[in-house]
Every structure is written in structure tokens, then in C-alpha cells.
Simulated assay, not measured.
Amino acid sequence: MTLETTPTVLIVPGLRDHVAEHWQTLLELKLPKAVSVPPLEHDKLSCAARVAALDQALAKITGPVILVAHSAGVMITVHWAQRHKRPIQGALLATPADLERPLPDGYPAFDALTVNGWVPCPRVPLPFPSIVGASRNDPLAQFERVAELAADWGSRLVDLGEVGHLNPVAGYGPWPQAETLISELA
């Protein structure tokens, strides 16, 4: 595979945007062709604004793309896929947050998520290959709910074990398995 045909990895962060110690941030720095959806300055809780930011980031990329989304970034990705037709080579969708259920303290309230267009979550097959990584002890989504979403999206489900929300709070900076899963989509 030449550099021209090597897919660009586009990182789709969740609602907390870019966290220095997060595996997505570290992955972007490590991979030769990786960029990230830039943080929003306004309408940070708006699903439509997040989807538009993803679409704008994609518009700057020529050639094949693999999306690497985490948490609410997964929901941004599935909402984007319902509204846009750009070809995507594949997507790694890691520990999606279940925004159809109340989240723990410190996260946006269910009513705020509903008003900002996050609910309901699209439940139709994605138009590209995808892998959903699910945690057995994620405080933001039960494994069974994530398995249902993966089935609805036509995604391959990967049981990640007990990795919490796969973020620095759960003990994750680097997450080497991401590169293995991305290579399966390349």
C-alpha cells in the first residue's frame, strides 16, 4: 500500500473533545496519516454542530478514510452516516456512550441531550464496514445495549473486557489494540 492509497485515519472525539492523555490523541500523534475533528468553539452540545464539524473535517481529506470514534464520537459518526454519502473505508467505534439512558453525574443530562438532537440514536445499518469495541464495565453504556447497537449498525462486535470507558479515568492512555482493529479495516 502506497502513501497515496493508505487511508487517512480521522479521529472523532467525544463530547470532552481532545484530552492530552487520551488514546485517541496519542494515536493521532503516532500514526503517519491521522488527523482529528477540531474542537468546537460554539454549540458544543449540539449534535448537528458536531456532525457538521465531522463533515467539514472529511471535506479536507482526499482519498480513503477510516473513522476512529470514541464515546459520543461514535454517536456523531452514526448520525453523520444517516445524513451524508461520502464513501468511508471503515470505522472503529470504541465504547459508545448510550445517550438514550441517563448518564452518570458530571455528564450532560438526558433532557439536554434530547433537546440538542442526540436522541433517538440511529439504528440502521451503517453504509461502511465497522467494528464496535464494547466494555463489560463501562459506566456510560451497558455491554448488552452496545451489542444491540452493533447489531443494528451491522457492525462486528469486539468484547474488550473490563476496560471501563476506555479513557484516562479508566487507566487508558495508549490503547495498542486500536491499531490492530484499524489494520483490519485498512
Rank of each mutant, 00 (worst) to 15 (best):
A109N: 02
L29G: 15
H18N: 15
L54R: 04
D111C: 04
G117T: 12
K44D: 11
L27H: 06
V37I: 08
D43A: 14
C47R: 12
K33G: 00
R16D: 13
R136W: 04
D98W: 02
V68G: 02
L93K: 06
A48G: 03
A57L: 04
V78R: 11
D105G: 08
D55T: 13
L67K: 08
L58I: 10
T62G: 14
T95I: 06
N137I: 09
A72V: 03
R86H: 03
V78L: 10
D138P: 06
N116A: 05
A91I: 04
F128M: 12
H70C: 10
V37A: 00
E21F: 10
W23T: 05
S36K: 12
D105I: 09
S36E: 07
P125W: 07
I66V: 15
K85T: 14
V132P: 05
Q89R: 15
V51A: 05
P39G: 04
G63P: 08
V124D: 09
N137H: 09
D98L: 13
P120N: 01
E41I: 06
I76E: 09
S135K: 04
H22A: 14
P127I: 02
E100N: 13
W118V: 09
S130G: 10
S71I: 05
I61A: 08
G106C: 06
G106V: 06
V19N: 14
G14D: 11
A97F: 08
V19P: 01
A69K: 13
D105L: 12
P122Q: 05
R136Y: 05
I131F: 03
P96K: 13
R101C: 10
L103S: 08
P139V: 09
L45E: 10
P139Y: 06
V124T: 15
S46L: 02
T25M: 11
V65S: 05
L58Q: 09
I76K: 04
